[in-house]
Design a protein around this nucleic acid. Sequence first.
DNA 1: ATGGTCGTTCTTTTT
DNA 2: GAACGACCAT
Length: 738
Amino acid sequence: MTTAAARDILHNLNEDQRRAVEAVDGPVLIIAGPGSGKTRVITHRIAYLVRTLGVNPRRILAVTFTNRAAREMRSRVEGLIGDRAGQLTMGTFHAFGARILREYGEEIHVPNDFVIYDQDDQTNLMRRVVEAEGLDPRTYRPAALLDAVSGAKNRMQTVGEYASHAGNRYERIVASCYDRYEQYLQAAHAVDFDDLLMKPVLLLRSNVDVRERLQNRYDHVMVDEWQDTNRAQYELTSLVAGKHQSLCVVGDPDQSIYAWRHADIENILRFERDFPETQTIPLGRNYRSTSTIVDAAHALVKENKDRKEIELTAAKGTGRPVIIEPTDDEEYEALYVAEEIERLVADDKMRYGDCAIMYRTNAQSRAFEDSFNRAGIRYRIIGGLRFWERREIRDVVAYLRVLRNPFDDISLLRIVNTPTRGIGRRTMDILQQWAEANNDVPLYAAMQVAADGQESRAPSLPAQSIGPVRAFVQMMSELLEALQGEDVLEFFDQVLAKTGYRDFLEEDENAEDRLDNVEELRNVAAQYQALPPGEAFAAFLDQVALSTDLDAAIREEGSGRQDAVTLITLHQAKGLEFPVAFIVGCEEELLPHIRSVESGDPAEMEEERRLCYVGMTRAMERLYMTYALRRNMRGQYGPRKASRFLQSLPDNLVKRRMPSLSGFYGPREPMPEPQLDVPKAPAPFRPGDHVGHARFGQGVVVACLETPTRDDFEVTVAFKGQGVKRLLAGLAGLEKLN
DNA sequence: ATGGTCGTTCTTTTT
DNA sequence: GAACGACCAT
Ligand SMILES: Nc1ncnc2c1ncn2[C@@H]1O[C@H](COP(=O)(O)OP(=O)(O)OP(=O)(O)O)[C@@H](O)[C@H]1O
């Protein structure tokens, strides 16, 4: 490797960053604030290892928090080392765990045809557990039990260990649900998301052979977002990196926002304790944001009691003040943002793609979608109703899963009567009971026996059900036969046709969208055509389970990035950056979320504050924080209060617009109807314009909105000494002043 | 027994 | 605004 290349790699780094990149021999811990180049250190460290030290990229493991981050990192590294970036092992802990289980799972009795159960499958399974345990699902909510079980797994507690620590009645109940839940998973040849971490750790703990193989495969290990790892992830990391100890983890305790998912901030201290050789390297310069943004964010986060100060100074200048903008309701909030974006694009040379809208809950995106559609602004939503969460996708995937793994009762129950084919609740109950009484065989086996009807102790179904069951079993076995010979795509099409699912979708009122989605899924399947059919299916189904952002993956690989505004939750925005950021819904009981307010747990409130901090520090140049004075929450309008977090921001760094109560006490005004095809007339006034009026004198335009009929503009003007008035531009005779 | 409809309830964040 | 449970018509 040329020395020029080495200089290249180190050239774009400051002294501390360079030190972190070059310290490749022992464990390195980088604790530093936002925008200080932690991720950059990882990418450059990889490049340095490969280009300067000649390390084989296959021997490098880099773990990121999301699939999105992994894709992003890979493309960054590609920019530094070229095609060989493709040989790196790069992905989430869960994806890495799944890989280990596919390869070595049988060593700990994970069957090689296992499927991965996601959130939804897990909840369904736990529902059945609760039912079987004879518990009331109202008192013992499946989601709560699942959370407890997930917590146990993330702390590496097996059923036995959890049970022996159970101190009260509730925990003993959790223990027995955990126990049964595990049995059901095993019977279904399934693992849940947490198993993807826990089982590989159990495997590596107990099996020296596999452990050494993995340790020898990866000479260098790097982990991003270390502050949000849990115990199982910690142990997985230390087991894999245990031999060479060329390990580099980076994180920021102020950006820890996943404690609710059992992330353990102690992992930072634990690292220094367990790896005594650790070099801890701080990075103190923020290259991302203006000093105003850095200081405002710091003013917020320093309110947290449970926190150590981290040095961080901005490399950039002051920039603009943070804009705090109250709006009437969520529709006006969205309208304000749309207009502000248009203004930034028109006047400040920003592009749509430079802008991001960040919110606490996915439900908030809707108002912005509507508003952007109306204004003709292109946008893309990250997360939200995820691709694989859509009903048609889950249904098709369930068919494929059952065909691959007939033990998968949860998927079978999902599709057995979709489309309806006369196999209802009662029939499945009978089959279920029969299956339990017969050695817990899978439901599908029970159906086969019932359809066959030969065996004397076959399940006794009502006469009208036997026909449908027989037809279903017949159809499935024909498909199973087809699975042997055909390639992935042919099989995919067969499934849609034979099960009648395609016809079923065509009846749907959203047929077009749904069929489109299925078509996209088919495109994903197409990527696996090159693999041998058996393997192709496993790989395809794994990807479906693991890439929670499949749609993003499709879009980014496909047509390339559009110049579009990004809509994203605060959680998902972690690690990203945008020239212009809007944090919307900065209201009490939304940010901080009502759950954290009501719990009264200071730790939860501090996590909400960190979440807001993460959001603020995504902004490079411009930061807006908006809130609504009232908001439609599940059908009802309620008054809202500005978030306490806004009060922490020093006045010299922000520009607060005072709440102007246009129509606040009156009935809610309808928003203009969407009229997509009508070009927008240029607004005669912009917010901020100075205007004169014959009777009210001079004033400043607050807002200028097209009327619902689109034939005039309603101008809201704050007049000196006269208060705020709303006038029709066509009638009021407003005069623009300079 | 099934399948559709209506009313009730609960509502974060994600791998 | 969705998702589940109860109820009713077939
Ligand atoms: N030495 C440097 N010189 C110039 N720009 C830099 C330097 N280091 C980092 N940057 C830039 O600063 C921005 C933030 O870097 P990076 O995303 O690596 O920070 P980070 O510490 O991972 O942030 P966060 O914790 O918020 O995710 C990026 O745009 C990066 O290109």
